[in-house]
Structure formats: structure tokens, C-alpha cells
Design a protein around this nucleic acid. Structure first.
Length: 189
DNA sequence: TTGGCGATTGGCT
DNA sequence: GCCAATCGCCAAT
């Protein structure tokens, strides 16, 4: 069966995001919200072709595309297609599982529910910035994905958040009822 | 060379 | 709910 960027965005729900900090500390969270940016999507950074910033979107699948947004937050994406094809999945939120105290420290003390709820908060909690842009998640020892066999969740679908172009595409996926999911209430019933 | 704007967030009304 | 913060990118000059 063919698996594209959009299917993969759904398949990533429930997987673990794991981070090893420079001092050896381990952080982990379960992915509860993603968005797909497939080839030909006008709202994708890759839509107008490859540039220095978005080069990792054109890398082979499973590479970390990290970019700076609004001059102060980072967003973590995972490249999904063949070399030369610009596409990625934005990791919008995770449910913290391990290293929670450290995440709170990295984020500045907040309530547990908002530690990694939203792409900018997630990157702050996991100490992810452009230094990790371009790394291969299949081999790197600083950031990777894992599957702990956790049963598939009840996954909802909606339009994506914060876009001005191609807003109608139903390419956001989230765990129904999970308090660590970001965005307006109306988009996560 | 320039300036409008963004896959966001937190603080304030 | 509204809006400022803050800066790199990139289309237009």
C-alpha cells in the first residue's frame, strides 16, 4: 500500500519523540498532534522551491526540518519523501512522559498541560533549535522516534492551524480528548 | 537593498 | 478576545 505524507502524519500519532540532551538527560513524549505539508501544497515552505532555509524538506524521509518562526520560536518537522521532493510533517504537540521536570525548567515553569502543547512550546521543552536541522532521525543520538506499542488512539482530523493559504485541506491529526493537544477547542472536538 | 510577514505565544483588556 | 514581541526569509524594488 502506498504511504504518502498525509498518511504518515496520521501514522505518527502515538509514536514517541525522544531527545538526549548534551548532559545525557533523556526526554520523551508521545506525539498527540501533527500536520502534513505535502508536495504541491501552497502553504508549504517548499512550495516555491528549495532554498537554504527549507533544504531539509527536500532531504530523504526522516530528517529533522527545524525552522525559526516569528523571530522567537522553533518548529520541528520530519521530512517524508524522496530526495528532491519537498514535504514534511509538523509535530505540533506531545504528551510529556519522561524528563518532565527538565522540560518545565527549559520552558519556564508552567502547568503540566502546557509544557509541549503547540509547536513552539514543544521545541522549547525539548531544547530543539536550528542546530538540529538536517539530522537523520534514524541514526542520530540527539533526537529520534520510537514505537512503544501503545494501542492506536482515537484520531481526529481537521483543517490546519495558523495558515492563510490552502486553509481548507484536512491535514491536521490529533488524539481526541487528549489535554496536550493545541489549537482552538472547535478544531479538536 | 528593503520591508512586509510568518506552520506562535503570553500577557493584558 | 486582542495584540505586541522579534528576526530571518524572500519577493519586489
Amino acid at each position: 500500500v502506498p504511504v504518502g505524507t498525509v498518511d504518515l502524519a496520521q501514522a505518527l500519532i502515538g509514536k514517541l519523540l525522544v531527545r538526549r540532551l548534551p548532559d545525557g538527560a533523556l526526554l520523551a513524549g508521545r506525539i498527540v498532534e501533527t500536520e502534513a505539508y505535502e508536495v504541491g501544497d501552497p502553504s508549504s515552505h517548499a512550495f516555491r522551491g528549495q532554498t537554504v532555509r527549507n533544504a531539509t524538506m527536500f532531504a530523504r524521509h526522516m530528517h529533522a526540518y527545524v525552522y525559526l518562526i516569528y523571530g522567537m520560536y522553533h518548529c520541528l518537522n520530519i521530512s517524508t519523501e524522496l530526495p528532491g521532493e519537498g514535504a514534511a510533517i509538523l509535530i505540533r504537540a506531545v504528551e510529556p512522559l519522561a524528563g518532565i521536570e527538565r522540560m518545565i525548567e527549559l520552558r519556564g515553569a508552567r502547568d503540566a498541560r502546557s509544557i509541549a502543547r503547540g509547536p513552539g512550546r514543544l521545541c522549547a521543552a525539548f531544547a530543539i533549535d536550528r542546530d538540529l536541522d538536517g539530522i537523520d532521525l534514524d541514526v542520530d543520538d540527539r533526537l529520534w522516534l520510537a514505537d512503544d506499542g501503545h494501542p492506536a488512539a482515537d484520531i481526529g482530523t481537521s483543517i490546519r492551524i495558523g495558515l492563510s493559504k490552502a486553509v481548507e485541506r484536512p491535514h491536521r491529526f490529533y488524539v481526541r480528548g487528549n489535554p496536550h493537544v493545541s489549537g482552538p477547542r472547535a478544531l479538536s472536538p
